[in-house]
Every structure is written in structure tokens, then in C-alpha cells.
Design a protein around this nucleic acid. Structure first.
Length: 515
RNA sequence: GGCCCCUUCGUCUAGUCUGGUCUAGGACACUAGGUUUUCAUCCUAGUAACACGGGUUCAAAUCCCGUAGGGGUCACCA
């Protein structure tokens, strides 16, 4: 007997954006299929009419494609807005359709339910259909081992909803049937399904299907130990909205504020209005925050799995080569954004400068148009260059470099920085700044190199301690703070007029008496 | 609450199956020092864990039992 060809599947319900935990499940299913020359199926479990939406389907497809996890069967792998992923003729694979709502239309489930009814293994309960669970049941999970459940702890459960549920099959029934009919060999999913699995095993047995291999993955948790969920975003947004006394824009938002729903779109809208960042939970959040897809995949692969030889930084080829269920842990893990950020920072620092430039430009085009407008594409390379080594994410330059785009008189001076670099020792810094202002004013070749040389020669001429004696007062005048990238490129990018304006304003605003 | 699962540094983990090589290793974080015009980077050093209690054994992080803690699940949600 030859081993069956490996078939894995990722089967999200289209009720929102792709969650980070779902991304890890998809990643492992993808890697295992690729490792074994098998296939990955993308199937949409949309049997809950009320919660499923085409928008969610599209966003799941978008996010999976962004991550680079392509499937062999399922909806057409495209984000083209002109393409309807539900269209049957463009779905790929010969086991379709790949939407459970469509499979229901085709009568796939009803035939099998009728058989169970006829054989007495299921019975009608009001207008629903219930499956009998009257025997002890055991199954083997690849990660958790053998699980045995006594009949007394099992209850008959609904396999087909009644009228109010549209007579659709329930999740338990549909997954079992679809996995069997699509010849899925390995069911990889979150650990929350472990206690559902006896139901699926019993259903397989009752319908004469071979049981698949079940692979349950431990959960991904927040730093406080709670489960990472989109409710975290809602909670954070709600709190911010309350603190800021934000008036609800519409009924939806009012319901959101009253905790009647946890809509992440509303959460995002509030965050945008208030200019705050919510905890990243969904793949799209990480994208927006400026994480690279391969870094994100690398990091989440490490949550619950490791190659065993200490390697932590790896790419997808490595994962395909080394992935194995025997090295998946059983305990839940907390998501550590700091470690992710470090991984991301390293990846950004390592890449060629033009690659970083290209990515940052694309990121700003998508999320930070104000920077693009103010800095201009011509100067963008300089901007990218000065932040590459200091960036944790593609958002770092726009966070740290806020001063590049703000108005000259919007600079707020940090008191500590002012004292240390300007007013201390009878305004030593202010004096240097005043003198150097004239040097700058006389400079005709406004480039980073020339300006750097100007600072150096000025330092020597006036026998100052080091470049910092000028650079630091300049930083405070230009940014309000004692921190900026190298001073030469900073001056260049700000431009002569802005630099002089800000120095003048600083000299006018800050005096030794104000201290 | 019933049932199921889990428990090594703050966090992710190696080691557990096949007890001795573990005075428990790595990474991120943290602390100290160094390099640097600031910040970041980088370099060096350091702090820090086998949940608890019993048992088995010459020997236990590793095997057994119990306790505690955490998670999941008990829907016509998935």
C-alpha cells in the first residue's frame, strides 16, 4: 500500500480579518504540504449566515497572499477587485466548490445526513438534526497523543441547524464531510478544537470515512496570559474613546462603545481618529505597523515549534526543509512583540539600501502620505538611508522622524534636552548655536557631506570638545529633542530655510532666564 | 462546576520519550561597562528557571502519584 498523497487545508470562517493565530496554522499547513510535495486547500467555512461576509473572504485571501502562502485548491488566488472569489468557474482544484455555503447548495451534506437519519445514527430534534454520541471514543492527536473520552461525558449534538439557521450543516458536520471528501490527510488547527474532535471522529466512523491525522496547535496568548483576540483591539479602542470623550459617529460606534460589538473596523477607525496604535492582532495590523511578512512568519513559526538546533532566524525554505510535527510543543505561548520587533529590525538593517528604500516608499504610499508629500520622492532615498539602521519597523521613520514633516513653529522643546544642551553653563549651547547659524547661512552647497565638514571645521576652529557641541544644540533647535539621525543628512533633508527658521525660533524662544 | 489539555530564566524555548554527559544551554528583554556628535547599531560582562509535595532509584528537570496554577470546551459560532 502506498502512502496517500499529503493534503492539508486551511479552513477559516470568513468573519473578519486573518488572525495571527490563523496565520500560524496556515503556515504550518502550507509548510507541511510543501515539504511532502502535497497540496494545500483553502476552504471557507461560511455556514454561519449571519457572521460570514464576502469582504472577510477577500481580506483572508489578501492576507494569505501578502504572507506568500499560496494554496493549490480553493478560491482564485487573486486580490483583483474585479474578480469575485465566489465564482465557481474560477475556483482552482477539482474537489470544489470550496465554500461551504455552495457545497450546501449542491446538496452534499443533506444526502449524508439523510443516510445517518435512515440508519438511526441521527434523529430529528424539533426542526434540527442531532447525531447520537452513545459510545466511548478515542482518537490520536499527532501533538497531544491519545485522547479518550467516556460516553457519559459526550452528548448528542446538532449536525443540521433548523429553520432559523437556514437548515445548514453545523461546523462539526461540514468539516468532517469536507475533509473526507476533499481527501485531507492532515487536519491542522488550533487547540480549541481538541475537545471537539471526538465528535468529528465519531462522525467519520459513522459515515465510513477514514479518519484524518489530527494536529492540534497550542494557543498564542497575550503578555498577560489572556488569549490573543480581536477583542483586545476593541478593548483598547474603547478605553481610548472613553478617555478622549470621543462622541460616537453613528449607531454602530455607539453599540461598539456600549460593548455590544467588537467590530475591528470601528476599533481601527477610532484609532485613526485619535492617532493611536492598537495592539496588533490581525495580519493586516502587522502589515500596517511595518513588519515584513517573512519576519512575521519566522517569528510565529517559533511560537510552538523550533528546529531543535538552536536556529532562530530562518526563511520559508528552511521551514519547509526542517518542519516536523514532532517538534511542536503542547503548551501555550505568549506573543512577544519586542522579540518580533528585534527580528524585524535585524532584517531591515541587513537588506540592501535600495531595497529598504523601495519598501519604505511603498509603505508610506500606503499609510503615510504626509511624509511623501513633504519629503518628496526625490529626497526619499536620503530619508530612508538615515533611518534604515535605526528602524524596528517601517513605521519607525515616520514615528521618529515626525519633525521632518511638522511645521517649523510646531516644534516642542523638551525641557531636559534644552537645559542640557542649550541653557546649561550660561547658555553655552545657545551661543554656539547663534554663531553656527551664520556659518549655515553662508553655506551654498547644502548637502550632508558639506554640512558635516562645516561642523567639523567649526569645532576645530573654536576648539570645541567635539562635534556634539554643535550637533546637540542643533538637534534641540531642529527637533525639540536631543535625538535625531546623523546631523549632516538631517540638515540636508530639512532644507536650509527650515533649518534657519527653526534656529531663529529657538533662539527667540529659549533664553538662559527661561531656565 | 463536569470533561480535556498544559506547567524549565520576565518571555520564546533546548533538554523529558530512551534517568547519569545539566554546577540546566540559546534567543529576546533587563542591568553594567566600552565604541559613537545624540539615538540606534555594535562589542564585552552579568542577573535570572526545572510550580509545589510525596514516591521509585545508587542517581530524577527527565519515571509514578497527589496538590496548586493556567488554558480549552461544554451553542441550531466556528
Amino acid at each position: 500500500m502506498t502512502a496517500k498523497k499529503v493534503v492539508t487545508r486551511f479552513a477559516p470562517s470568513p468573519t473578519g480579518n486573518l488572525h495571527i493565530g490563523g496565520a500560524r496554522t496556515a503556515l504550518f499547513a502550507w509548510a507541511f504540504a510543501r515539504q511532502n510535495g502535497g497540496q494545500l486547500i483553502l476552504r471557507l467555512e461560511d455556514t454561519d449566515l449571519a457572521r460570514s461576509s464576502p469582504e472577510s473572504t477577500k481580506s483572508v485571501i489578501r492576507d494569505l497572499l501578502w504572507l506568500g502562502l499560496e494554496w493549490d485548491q480553493g478560491p482564485a488566488p487573486t486580490t483583483d477587485p474585479g474578480v469575485d472569489p465566489y465564482a465557481r468557474d474560477i475556483q482552482i482544484g477539482d474537489k470544489g466548490p470550496y465554500f461551504q455555503s455552495q457545497r450546501h447548495e449542491d446538496g452534499i451534506y443533506d444526502v449524508l445526513i439523510q443516510k445517518l437519519l435512515d440508519s438511526g445514527q441521527a434523529y430529528e430534534d424539533e426542526d434540527a438534526v442531532r447525531f447520537r454520541m452513545d459510545k466511548d471514543i478515542a482518537f490520536d492527536d499527532v501533538v497531544y497523543g491519545r485522547i479518550e473520552i467516556k460516553a457519559d461525558d459526550l452528548e448528542d449534538f446538532i449536525i443540521r441547524k433548523g429553520e432559523k439557521g437556514g437548515r445548514l450543516p453545523t461546523f462539526h458536520f461540514a468539516v468532517t464531510v469536507d475533509d473526507a471528501l476533499m481527501e485531507v490527510t492532515h487536519v491542522i488547527r488550533g487547540q480549541e478544537h481538541l475537545t471537539n474532535t471526538p465528535k468529528h471522529a465519531a462522525l467519520c466512523d459513522a459515515m465510513g470515512f477514514d479518519r484524518p491525522q489530527w494536529v492540534h496547535l497550542p494557543s498564542i496568548m497575550n503578555a498577560d496570559g489572556s488569549k490573543m483576540s480581536k477583542r483586545d483591539k476593541a478593548k483598547a479602542a474603547r478605553k481610548a474613546a472613553n478617555d478622549a470623550d470621543l462622541q460616537p459617529a453613528d449607531d454602530n460606534m455607539a453599540a461598539f462603545n456600549a460593548k455590544d460589538n467588537d467590530d475591528t473596523d470601528i476599533a481601527n477607525a477610532i484609532a485613526e481618529a485619535l492617532g493611536l496604535s492598537l495592539p496588533e492582532i490581525e495580519v493586516a495590523d502587522f502589515k500596517r505597523s511595518g513588519y515584513l511578512q517573512h519576519v512575521l512568519l519566522n517569528y510565529i513559526a517559533l511560537l510552538g515549534w523550533n528546529p531543535g538546533d538552536g536556529t532562530e532566524r530562518f526563511d520559508l525554505d528552511f521551514l519547509i526543509k526542517h518542519f516536523g510535527y514532532d517538534r511542536i510543543g503542547k503548551s501555550n505561548s505568549q506573543f512577544d512583540r519586542t522579540k518580533l520587533a528585534k527580528f524585524n529590525a535585524e532584517a531591515l538593517a541587513e537588506m540592501p539600501a535600495d531595497k529598504f528604500h523601495e519598501l519604505l516608499l511603498a509603505h508610506c504610499k500606503a499609510y503615510h502620505l504626509d511624509f511623501l508629500d513633504k519629503i518628496g520622492e526625490a529626497n526619499f532615498q536620503t530619508f530612508a538611508g538615515m533611518y534604515q539602521a535605526r528602524s524596528q519597523t517601517l513605521n519607525t521613520p515616520t514615528e521618529m522622524g515626525r519633525f521632518f514633516v511638522c511645521d517649523d513653529d510646531a516644534i516642542e522643546y523638551n525641557a531636559k534636552a534644552v537645559k542640557k544642551n542649550l541653557t546649561k553653563s550660561d547658555g553655552e549651547g545657545l551661543n554656539v548655536l547663534k554663531q553656527f547659524r551664520d556659518e549655515l547661512n553662508g553655506c551654498d552647497d547644502w548637502t550632508g557631506d558639506t554640512l558635516h565638514a562645516l561642523i567639523e571645521s567649526f569645532t576645530e576652529k573654536h576648539q570645541l570638545k567635539n562635534m556634539g557641541s554643535i550637533a546637540q544644540p542643533l538637534r534641540v533647535a531642529l527637533t525639540g529633542n536631543a535625538v535625531s539621525p546623523e546631523i549632516g543628512p538631517t540638515l540636508e533633508l530639512l532644507g536650509k530655510q527650515t533649518v534657519l527658521n527653526r534656529i531663529d525660533r529657538c533662539l527667540k524662544t529659549i533664553t538662559t532666564d527661561s531656565d
